[in-house]
Amino acid sequence: MRRLFILLPPMLWLLLLVAAPLGILGLIAFAEAGPGVPPFIPPLGWAGGPVWQGSSESIGTLLADPYYLEAFLRSLLTAFVTAALCLLLAYPMALGIAGARPPWRIPLLLLVLLPFWTGFLPRLGAWIGLLRDGGWVNGMLGAMGIGPLRLLYSDLALYLGMVHAYLPFAVLPLATALMRRDLALEEAAADLGAGPWVVFRSVTLPLSLPAAASAFLLVFIPAAGEFVIPELLGPPEAQLVGRVLWGEFFQNRDWPLAAGLALALLVLLLPPILLFQRLGRRG
């Protein structure tokens, strides 16, 4: 009874804010698009009794049209490259923060989080200002006799924006794990004859792999559904799931297809999320 009482608030929260919306999303995905507000015919109707009037047409479209499959693959690739770049940049940062003297660690971590204190869109606007054809970077390149280069709306701009936005998610778990590591292990390795690089390769790195996997997935999972950065910085051909979904929902007003896309993304991201949970339990 007491257990139930303790569990009730989170259960209610999950039911109202996760399960119910997901159910509605599922219903919309199996509805038929149609004129009206909202722009679909509810799949469960009433004509003297409950009547099924839904269709699996949007799911069929999703599977049949290679445009959507390509969007998924591109999204996963973009998320993978973003996560890998973030991991490569975050590891030395985290190592540096963990190696700093204790009074410096928290200020350094706060510096990593500093971008979160300003608006996300103004920061992307700043990138646009830097990268556009007549922007600062091209201005400087021009002064050196190079350019102008097409920097904005390119993969370069896309990844700059993605890494910029997601890097803190990779630094935080790595820095916490590296700060908590047992330095006696590294001293023992050095004592047994391992130089600094060998100590890192044979002790520090392998022991931080669970944290590195967490960092990777913490970037990969949200990056796979990212909409704003590809839209504002990326090349027009970078039709990622987030952009396609937005287009189906707001431009084509095809809610069933948009709902199907959202569900498919969720299904695709479920394995990495489960993996993340297992890593979390082990770490």
Partner: peptide
């Protein structure tokens, strides 16, 4: 010289 640590410092992996 070799050292034996109080925590033993065995490599867990």
């Amino acid at each position: 010289v070799s050292m034996m640590f109080q925590s033993y410092a065995l490599f867990p992996h």
